[in-house]
Simulated scan of single mutants.
Amino acid sequence: MSALAVGAGFGAATSLVNAISHSYADLGSRAHTTSGWSVVEIMSVLLDSGWAWAGLAVATGWLVTHAGEGRPAALARGGAAGALALLAATAAYSIVDTIRSDGPLSSWYESEPLIWWVTSVIFGAPLGAVGACVKYPEVIGFLARLTVPVGAAVQMIVLPPGRNEVVATIVKTIVWTAAAAAIGFVIVCFLSVERRRHSLTAAESP
């Protein structure tokens, strides 16, 4: 239920922010097309990015698992939650889009290509499993915590966002800054925990 609720909320919010962004866009203006931007458009680009949807699956996998839970059970629960979250997000996005376009609500599932439904399961499950690993203190937990910020930073290089250079620059600056801060925080915390663990091991040694 948590995975469905979080996914549906994310998908509906993304669709609404996209709609607001489009309503404010003056696509007939050359200046707006080549260099214009708005806060809501930046939010729209951020929410509708692949790394944000991947982060949804990872976050949901982390949310539904517990640190003391057995690893196989945690991975299974996290994987299922990640897939359900992305399916719910896609469904909510489709429903809101259908309502906004005044289409028949019974056709909401047709507003999104089949590829997005399939992708939700194919990528949602492993990403949810990655989220389940976040709570583990070992190297696997360290790598899991780096997945979203590293993925976000890489996407800014491979698939630059935005419809013009100004939007792209603003979004890349935001994402790279946040990713660098997150990566630095994860590394510092991991090294601190490892240093403390080695200190305790050395103190217990005869």
Rank of each mutant, 00 (worst) to 15 (best):
L143Y: 06
G28D: 12
T33E: 12
I140T: 11
D26P: 06
W62M: 14
L143E: 07
A73Y: 09
P137D: 14
S101F: 06
S111D: 12
A31C: 07
A83L: 02
W116M: 05
P113T: 00
V58F: 07
R100K: 08
L87V: 01
P113L: 02
V39Y: 15
M43I: 11
A92E: 01
A52Y: 06
A88F: 00
L127D: 05
G68P: 03
A129T: 07
W108P: 00
W51N: 02
R100Y: 06
G61D: 04
G128P: 02
L127E: 06
S29H: 08
A52M: 14
A132I: 04
A81Q: 03
A67V: 13
D97V: 07
A81R: 01
M43H: 10
E69R: 05
W117Q: 02
V64N: 04
Y24W: 13
V39T: 15
A83K: 00
A91E: 00
T34M: 14
R71E: 15
A91D: 00
M43S: 14
E112M: 11
G103E: 10
A52G: 06
L75R: 03
E41R: 15
S107Q: 13
I115C: 04
R100P: 00
T90A: 03
L47S: 10
V64L: 10
W51C: 03
P126R: 12
W108T: 00
A88H: 01
V134T: 07
